[in-house]
Structures are given as C-alpha cells and as structure tokens.
Simulated assay, not measured.
Amino acid sequence: MAPVIEFEARRGRLFGLAYRLLGSVEEAEDAVQDAYLRWDRTDRATIEHPDAWLTKVVTNLCLTRLTAARATREQYIGEWLPAPVPTDQLGPLETVEQRDSVSFAMLALLERLTPPERAVFVLREAFGYGHRDIAEVMGLSEANCRQLHRRAAKHLADRKPRFQPARETRERLAARFLSAAQSGDLRALEDLLAADVTSWADSNGRLPMARRPVIGRDRVVRYFTGAWRKAPGNLEFTCTEVNGGTAIAVHAGGLLAVLALEFDGEAIAAVRIVANPAKLSHLRVPASP
C-alpha cells in the first residue's frame, strides 16, 4: 500500500487525537501534517506498528505545541475557547467518555492540566490506552504515567455532572432559547436557564462581547437580551451539531459566531460563544434558507 494511502486511512483518528490535545483546528491539522512528513521520510520497513508509531509522533508534536501555546494564550484578549468542530469530523464517539472528551466543557477543563497530564488523560480516557502503552507513547515509566493520570483526574474532579438530554430535546430547547432572546421574553428566557448558568465569549477582542464570564441567570438574561437589541437585523440562525453537542450558528453574510450550549436536563447550564474569525474559517454551516 502506498505511504500516502496508509497515512490517509489514519488521518481522521490522528486529527481527533491532536484536536483533543490542542483545542485548535489549525494547530491540530498542522501537527497531523508534520506527522505525515515524518512518516513519508521514514523507511516503513522499520515501523513495526504504524498506529502506535503515528500516535507517538502526533502526541509529541502536540506536547511541543502545547508548551508554546501557553505563552501565546496569555496574550489573548478575553476568554480563550476551543475552536468548534463538526461532530462527524471527530472520529468514533461511541461511548460517553469519547463524546465527553470533545465537549467544550471538557476541553476547557483540560486547559488546567500540564501538557503531559493532558496527553496521558486523553490517551487513557478518550482512546482507551493502557498505562503501559501510554508509557511507550510518552517515553516515560508506567508508574509516572499512572501518577500523571491521577493528578489529571484530581484536577478535573470538581466538574459538576450534567444530565445530557437526547438530541431532539436539545434542539427544541435551543429553538426556544433563540425565540425568547430575540423577542426579549425575559420570563421565557429565565425558565430555560439554570440558576447557575454561565456564558463565555471568545472573539479575541474582535467584537464587543463580555471579556469575562457572565454568571447567574439574571445576569445572563440581561446580557443576551441586551445583545440582541443591539444586533443587526440581518442575522440568520441555524441549529447545528459541534463537539458532540447542540449549537446555534449565527450568520450575517458569513458565519459570525457559534453558540455552543451545555444542558442539564431541561435547563441550559452554559453558553460558550466562539466569534473569533480565525476559529470559524474551517466551518461550513449553511444559513437557513
């Protein structure tokens, strides 16, 4: 089999790994392409297990990028959120753990971890690697990898469990949220939001959005109703699926923003607004006809 064909058969899985490690589509694609260049230059006869070899290469390329990204993100204006990715481009999401590993909530939490902790956690939780295999990928001892996984799990232990409703329910709630916000129906909006709902916005200073989290039902209601009053009249909205969850795509000539919604039963528990053009250029979400 030709080297490029062998690699392309694995590209989707490698992108899924790189994206979980980096939270950036552009950086993940660059890491996967760099892995291909190494694959193309290497004598395949020396590679006994291609999947393991490529996983190791991509993981280590991402670890280097994660270290550099920390300094860059310190200069970011406002909140930094992961770039949204259509769910069908993230590889198999057959288990709860796999779906959770690409959610905005989890990717945001993974920013708390050191690069090695993040890599061990992703390999273990999202890809089901055993600690012995992770040690081989990371170039560390098995005991060290177990310790890194324990540390990562401890950092993430305070995450509040959410009840994720079925897709049809999420889309119905998203439609009600849009209708209430656009019409200024404060009561309807309050009824949809959890008491501790939080909204984050990421535009890197490109748009007049809150640069800090907006926390609490009353504040979030005022924030969204105020934003819609100031919004241009040519906005169009589409319900879509990104990162394993329901989102609202906002168009104004082109794609302006993606609102990723997090649910807790019948309530909206979080809204993450990605409006940095650099994080939306890869998305192809058509506007409503």
Rank of each mutant, 00 (worst) to 15 (best):
K160M: 05
E136L: 12
V122E: 00
L123R: 01
R150N: 15
E171I: 06
N144Y: 10
A166W: 02
P165M: 12
Q147L: 13
S179W: 02
R170Q: 14
R146I: 07
L123D: 01
A153W: 07
S183G: 15
G128E: 02
R162A: 09
I134P: 00
R176Y: 09
G128I: 05
V137S: 10
D158C: 03
S179I: 06
I134Y: 01
L173T: 05
K154I: 01
R159P: 00
A166R: 10
H149N: 14
V137W: 03
A175M: 11
G128W: 00
F127N: 01
H131D: 06
E168N: 12
G184M: 10
R167S: 14
A181R: 12
N144E: 14
N144V: 04
R170I: 01
V122C: 01
G130L: 07
F177A: 06
N144F: 08
A166V: 08
E142R: 15
S141T: 15
E168V: 13
Y129V: 02
G184W: 08
R150T: 12
G130V: 03
H155S: 14
A174S: 11
M138H: 01
K160V: 13
E171T: 12
G130R: 11
D133P: 03
A157F: 06
R132F: 04
T169D: 10
E142T: 13
R167Y: 05
L140F: 08
Q182M: 14
A181D: 14
A135Q: 03
A143G: 07
V137T: 12
A174P: 00
I134M: 06
Q147M: 15
A157W: 07
E168R: 14
A175Y: 04
H149V: 05
R151K: 14
A157N: 06
R150I: 12
H155T: 08
Q182R: 15
R162F: 07
M138Y: 05
D185R: 10
A181W: 07
R176G: 06
E168I: 06
Q182C: 11
A174I: 06
R150D: 09
P161M: 13
A143L: 12
F127M: 04
R124A: 08
L186Q: 15
T169E: 13
L178D: 08
A175P: 00
L156G: 05
R176V: 05
Q164Y: 03
G128H: 01
G184H: 09
R124V: 01
L186Y: 08
C145A: 15
A174R: 02
V122G: 02
R162Y: 13
M138W: 01
K160Q: 07
A180V: 08
F163T: 12
A181K: 10
R187S: 15
R159S: 09
L140A: 15
D158E: 11
L140R: 13
A143T: 06
E171P: 00
G128P: 00
A174K: 05
R146H: 11
K154C: 00
F163W: 02
T169K: 14
D133Q: 11
G139R: 02
E168T: 14
Q164H: 06
V137L: 11
Q147A: 15
G139V: 09
C145Q: 07
K160C: 05
R146K: 14
A175W: 06
